[in-house]
């Protein structure tokens, strides 16, 4: 794709983009950090629709903040109770309507493939803010951006991903995004939450270097980045299965006693109990910085999509 390739482009999966596109995005995001608490009036004539069919705090509010900081306006809903979906309107009709009102649509939906379907219907660009257990591309872009901001480089890092590797969509998107870089991946999860076959086959097809363990102690000393995700209770088809794995892992000071001094801990948040609160005060904890960078990263994304690069 390359420079200017973001303009008017849908963001359905990270695989719609390449490493060069990420570099364009990241350098734009560094610039946007200057305006993340002020205002840059470049999207004054634009309206962004936020269609959140599923709960969200950070993703929705950071998109909203990003659009407002760029001088644009936001319409939308969160949850379907107050919309005509509650009267039985389908996704296709809802998207057609938003498409006629807004310049771009951000969608989060519980069903896999919903964002791709929405993009086929809408003429305006559609940004996937999470579809079921499948993709969450802007989170993965934010994760990579945070890693890059911490280390100035992504190639050569040893990255551990701990938690629900089966149902967490951020894991899917993050691994896909990391496939553009030369990293070593340590996958850490309870046996029941190992990555799905689709992801394993993807890593193999891309020749990615990875291993799997059920115990973070086995690999903690090798890690530059420890990325933690919560167990995705809402995606378990069987509640008994959830009971079996809940609380299966926890990042605490004891685990970190064997960590490299410059280890960076990331988490897409929300967390349940997988990262102990005592970790928040250590220099390893970068998940709040990560959440904060969500605004400049999404400002950069919205600018590139709605206005193009310059």
């Amino acid at each position: 794709m390359g420079l200017l390739g973001w303009f008017n482009h849908d963001v359905i999966t990270v695989l719609d983009f390449n490493r060069e596109d990420f570099e364009v995005l990241f350098s734009e995001a560094v610039n946007m950090e200057k305006y993340a608490k002020s205002r840059l009036d470049i999207l004054n004539d634009k309206v962004l629709a936020l269609a959140f069919f599923e709960p969200s705090t950070r993703t929705r509010l950071s998109f909203e903040t990003a659009m407002l900081r760029l001088g644009g306006r936001v319409i939308g809903f969160s949850g379907t109770e107050a919309t005509s979906m509650a009267k039985g309107e389908n996704l296709a009709d809802t998207i057609r309507m938003l498409d006629s009102y807004a310049n771009a649509i951000v969608i989060r939906h519980s069903l896999e493939g919903a964002a791709k379907f929405a993009a086929e219907i809408a003429e305006s660009p559609v940004i996937n803010a999470g579809d079921g257990s499948q993709n969450h591309p802007t989170q993965a872009m934010l994760d990579l951006y945070t890693i890059w901001r911490e280390f100035n480089i992504i190639d050569g890092l040893s990255i551990g991903i701990l938690g629900d590797l089966k149902y967490a969509r951020v894991v899917n998107s993050l691994v896909q995004a990391l496939s553009y870089y030369k990293v070593k991946l340590h996958l850490i999860s309870p046996e029941l939450l190992k990555p799905r076959r689709e992801l394993l086959e993807f890593m193999n097809s891309r020749g990615m270097v990875y291993d799997w363990t059920d115990d973070p102690h086995n690999v903690i000393g090798d890690l530059d980045v420890l990325y933690v995700v919560r167990i995705q209770r809402e995606r378990f088809p069987d509640p008994i299965e959830y009971e079996r794995v809940k609380g299966a892992y926890r990042v605490d000071l004891k685990l970190l006693s064997r960590a490299k001094p410059n280890l960076v801990i990331l988490h897409p948040l929300p967390r349940v109990d997988e990262v102990d609160f005592t970790v928040d005060n250590t220099h390893y904890a970068k998940y709040f910085r990560q959440a904060g960078l969500g605004v400049p990263l999404r400002m950069a994304l919205l600018k590139l999509i709605l206005k193009g690069g310059d």
């Binding site: 389908n90 896999e112 493939g113 791709k116 379907f117 689709e198 086959e201």
Partner: peptide, 28 residues
């Protein structure tokens, strides 16, 4: 979803052994 105007679409990734992938959800 029966109420959505959508048809399934699969891409063939391997012919022998046969493997096709859902274009929407990625399931093999």
């Amino acid at each position: 979803q029966q109420r959505e105007p959508i048809r399934s679409r699969f891409r063939v990734v391997s012919r022998d052994p046969l493997k096709i992938v859902c274009e929407y959800c990625g399931t093999i």
